[in-house]
Design a protein around this nucleic acid. Structure first.
Length: 974
DNA sequence: ACCGCCGGGTGCC
DNA sequence: ACCGCCGGGTGCC
């Protein structure tokens, strides 16, 4: 149940309801992905061909392994050449000439995507067999088939000779299709139970003054192991002289690198920031601490912490990182110690070079593997730049210090260990020619700085937390890389322990010419709120992928927000090979999973598991809860309508029932779903306040005939989508909808996004969600409705529910005026209505809804959370405003004004105050109008809950459809 | 490639 | 012999 929050609050029935659902879109998306994603599609068929010229290339392929086909139009021997590469991008050979002509034609005209699988012949020296399958849009099928047959190749239906991901032949294809429910459950559970029991605990170094909770020690231990452990990554086995990947059946000659880092996906409030700070301080090179407080004797301590690493695991000779064994490496260790404490003395730099030489063979080989021939050149550039900026660096670095001082960042300035002179060590480190030399000659081993990237809104949180958790006598160089005056000197940045910046600064730098952040060789990059980069098309995401670092971490409470696709960016950032390449992610994970292939799902789960640690606040360590939270109780307050309200309600109810029962009789409920929904929304609005209906409550039952009517109805639907305060997602940009427009098929997008789709596809333009035809002229915008709003307020009248709330609030205030409340509705207009009586009764309140800018939201939250005298007692909150993770722990009462379809959305909302930091018991009041759809909704909510908990999965799609209709019938008491 | 193809050497049985 | 046949050289695109 917890897990549903992963999807931004969504349930699983009412799958067409744009108002209450975003997950349903995601789930349907899993079916429709095929059409929407340019890199998947319908399978047209497959044919057998051959790969030639194997002996000229080094790429190896295993039986059943997938290969990629790459056009080489520039090939001097044949402009139709099609190159064949293995999963790791090594060339295997070419497609035989005659076949290449065909493929070139299909690929160049974008008629289909061609994917290859090698069924056999992998040990041949000269040629091997390949099964080519063709995927594309249905409308291109004919053209493709024609191309193929006209060149007298035979297209076979189905993926003949295709290898299942588990290595077995699929003739007949035996992938088990999952139902949508199963798929959804699997998604939801993807990140559940990712707590490895065997990870143990690890204490933070002394420099961290806050004692870690047990689960934080576990996380620290896991993170250290993830950074240090040089054992083979998951899914890799040694096979003879090669390394074999069990997921892709591919082999490589070089030892694959483990992902050094991962995704820490703990729930909000479990201390991801603290754990990360502990990691930075505790696990510098070779598992030794970064900084020690004054007079501590680091060496013995270092070795004890080092021994805690499960070094025994690393089967064979990946010596470098694992060899934390104190004996063999003591000079090196000394070096690191010295280096961490004395920021930069010449001797240290010399030793640093030792480290380098001592060093990491695997780093060298990694460089080779990456095949960066211009490595040397790049370094030369750096040198030049360093020389130029040296003079400036001294002064700017002082400035950096000053910034920190201003921020009361005591730790950053108090020099220790080697005595007072170190105060100026920052400046010294920058100018030191020795260091400059050493850090250029070898980039990676010298890397020492951790780069933290976060949204602006949490930047100050990092500074606070550092201040709070790092001992004041620890000398930690932290630089806030922000603002127009930021010090862009890469040597200055490299010499820091930590550099903090925002996604915006990063992408702004990246779009410029020489990005300092991309020049520095980082020890570690941490993406805070890492789900921010889930859309790979953004500048931010691109910038993040280009960072040069040894270790990578993603901190997020919500690794998947809506869609499996969200995960790809995270995987790509971590460089979880080979899935950082889109084709392999799509072929091995995304397409199989979205098509319901069980093996695909298992692979996905395994993949996620090997890089993710996630605990929820209900997880337990050794049978005990991670954190103890105050109680939370729910009471339902039944609201009686006045006689007048009852009459109005019944009128609308009868009318709606007539319409819906006709649909039910005709069996057209699903076809008229939007109308059905509109009727239900209307009834729900009646239950809250008649003013919610506005003037757009034209009758919906009749099929629209005139364009004006159609327009009116679309606007109404748009209002339904947006007016509830839900933060709708645009299926094109995957971000919150900006400048919303609605298509004639009733799907909502950002205007620029959908306009671009129409522009590029011209007459063929189709709705990305339902594939219905769309035209620019038919997009309907949301009209401004300020008049309406004022109208609403002028003709003010109360309602039973308003009264019920007000009497609760007044009673509460008279009993204890320190208790703060959240007043939650799905209808933002209802919040507007509630403002009036609140003002009348002299309540101080703030409001948070989906229409507010991020900046304004932050202000409001801060105001509400502040315990300053005169701060607001009440927050009016739209149900889904702001997504996950907002901290409203100042409130301990929640009034849910209207029931949501999806109980998870309510839970999630309550979680915003029932979270770490909550001191009081939380009391939740749900107002339910007696004898109304609301009552029925609550019943259905309960049934849904049961279903979710039973995790049923055997229903077929047609049964599901009936159950949705049944739900509607139950709601309307038909 | 334990193939096909090319082109030079060769030529009754 | 302007052929066939033999056997060596050779081999992706």
């Amino acid at each position: 149940m917890q897990s549903r929050r992963w999807f931004g609050g969504a349930g699983f029935s009412f799958a067409d309801d744009p108002v209450t659902e975003t997950l349903s879109q995601a789930i349907r998306g899993t079916g429709e992905e095929l059409d929407r994603e340019p890199d998947t599609g319908v399978l047209f068929g497959s044919l057998r061909g051959s790969v030639v010229g194997l002996r000229y290339y080094t790429g190896v392929v295993n039986k059943g392994e997938m290969v990629s086909l790459v056009r080489q139009p520039q090939n001097p021997y044949d402009r139709n050449a099609v190159m064949v590469a293995n999963v790791y991008g090594s060339q295997v050979g070419h497609i035989k000439r005659e076949l290449a002509v065909l493929l070139a034609n299909i690929m160049d005209n974008n008629l289909a995507r061609v994917e290859g699988v090698v069924p056999f012949g992998v040990t041949n020296q000269f040629t091997m067999s390949v099964v080519l399958s063709f995927w594309g849009r249905e409308e291109n099928r004919d053209a493709v088939v024609r191309q193929i047959t006209s060149r007298s190749f035979k297209l076979q239906s189905g993926p003949t000779g295709f290898m299942c991901a588990d290595g077995s032949r699929d003739l007949p294809r035996k992938s088990v299709l999952l139902t949508a429910e199963e798929l959804k459950n699997a998604f939801d559970n993807l990140f559940e139970n990712l707590m490895e029991d065997k990870i143990g605990e690890r204490e933070a170094v002394e420099a961290v003054c806050t004692p870690l909770l047990p689960h934080q020690k576990q996380a620290l231990s896991w993170m250290c192991v993830s950074e240090n452990n040089a054992a083979l990554p998951h899914f890799w086995e040694v096979k003879g002289k090669l390394f074999y990947n069990t997921l892709t059946h591919s082999s490589v000659r070089e030892r694959p690198q483990r992902v050094r880092g991962g995704i820490l996906a703990d729930d909000m409030g479990l201390g991801k920031t603290l754990t990360t700070i502990a990691l930075i301080l505790s696990n510098f090179h070779h598992g030794k601490p970064l900084c020690e407080p004054e007079k501590s004797s680091p060496e013995p301590k270092a070795s004890t912490t080092a021994r805690k690493n499960p070094e025994g695991k690393s089967g064979d000779g990946d010596q470098a990182e694992v060899s934390v064994a104190p004996a063999g490496h003591s000079p090196c260790m000394r070096a690191n110690q010295a280096e961490t404490q004395v920021v930069c003395v010449e001797s240290v730099d010399v030793v640093q070079e030792d480290v380098v030489e001592d060093g990491d063979k695997d780093l060298v080989s990694e460089k080779k593997a990456k095949g960066r021939p211009q490595g040397g050149k790049a370094k030369a550039t750096t040198t030049k730049k360093a020389a130029k900026t040296k003079g400036k660096a001294v002064s700017t670095s002082r400035k950096g210090g000053a910034v920190l001082e201003d921020l009361d960042f005591a730790a950053a300035l108090s020099g220790i260990t080697q005595g007072a002179p170190q105060k100026k060590s920052v400046g010294k480190s920058v100018v030191s020619p020795v260091e400059a030399a050493s850090s250029q000659s070898t980039d990676d081993p010298a890397a020492r700085a951790t780069l933290i990237i976060c949204p602006l809104s949490v930047l100050s949180n990092w500074l606070d937390q550092l201040d709070q958790h790092v001992r004041a006598d620890v000398k930690l160089n932290v630089y806030l890389y922000y603002g127009s005056e930021r010090n862009r000197d890469t040597h200055f940045l490299s010499s820091q322990h930590m550099v903090l910046t925002t996604y915006n600064v990063l992408s702004a730098d990246y779009s410029g010419s020489a990005s300092p952040l991309h020049t520095v060789s980082w020890l570690r990059v941490v993406l805070d709120e890492g789900h921010i980069i889930r859309n790979p098309n953004t500048q931010q995401s691109k910038a993040v992928l280009k960072l040069n670092t040894q270790r990578r971490w993603i901190l997020t409470g919500t690794p998947i927000q809506n869609n499996l696709r969200d995960l790809w960016m995270l995987v790509a950032f971590l460089r979880l090979k080979p899935f950082d390449v889109r084709e392999w992610w799509n072929r091995v994970i995304q397409r199989p999973v979205t098509q319901g292939d069980k093996t695909g799902l298992q692979n996905l789960q395994a993949l996620v598991k090997c890089v993710t640690l996630r605990r929820t606040k209900t997880s337990r360590v050794c049978g005990r809860p991670l954190v103890s939270l105050p109680e939370r109780s729910v009471r339902i307050e039944e609201v009686e309508l006045t006689q007048k309200e009852r009459e109005e309600y019944e009128l609308a109810h009868t009318e709606g029932r007539t319409t819906i029962s006709r649909y039910v009789a005709e069996g057209t409920v699903l076809r008229n779903y939007a109308d059905v929904l509109a009727i239900l929304v209307r009834l729900r609005q009646f239950c809250c306040h008649p003013g919610l209906l506005g003037k757009t409550t034209t009758h919906t039952g009749v099929v629209a005939v005139t364009p004006a009517e159609l327009r009116e109805r679309l606007i109404m639907k748009l209002r339904l989508v947006l007016g509830t305060g839900s933060d709708e997602e645009c299926a094109v940009c995957l971000d919150s909808v900006r400048l919303p427009v609605i298509t004639h098929c009733a799907h909502v997008y950002c205007r620029p996004c959908i306009a671009e789709v129409i522009r590029s596809e011209q007459e063929q333009a189709r709705c990305p969600l339902c594939r219905g035809q769309i035209k620019a002229s038919e997009l309907v915008e949301f009209p401004l409705e300020e008049e309406e709003e004022s109208n609403l307020l002028e003709n003010w009248r109360s309602s039973s529910k308003v009264e019920a709330l007000m009497s609760s609030l007044l009673r509460l205030r008279s009993e204890d005026d320190s208790i703060r409340s959240l007043v939650v509705s799905q209808f933002t207009r209802f919040l507007t209505i509630l403002e009036i009586p609140l003002r009348e009764e002299g309540f101080k309140f703030v409001r948070l809804d989906g229409t507010m800018s991020q900046k304004r939201r932050a202000q409001v939250i801060q105001e509400f959370q502040s315990d300053a005298p005169g701060s607001p007692l009440i927050m009016l909150l739209s149900l889904k405003a702001g997504g996950v993770g907002i901290n409203l722990s100042a409130a301990s009462r929640v009034f849910l004004m209207d029931p949501a379809w999806n109980p998870a959305a309510e839970d999630q909302c309550v979680d915003r105050c029932h979270r770490l930091g909550q001191k009081r018991d939380v009391v939740i009041t749900k107002f339910i109008v007696k004898g109304s759809v609301e009552e029925n909704m609550v019943k259905i909510q309960r049934q849904k809950q049961d279903l979710v908990e039973k995790a049923f999965g055997t229903k077929n799609p047609s049964e599901r459809k009936t159950s949705r209709v049944d739900e509607i019938r139950a709601l309307m008491e038909l």
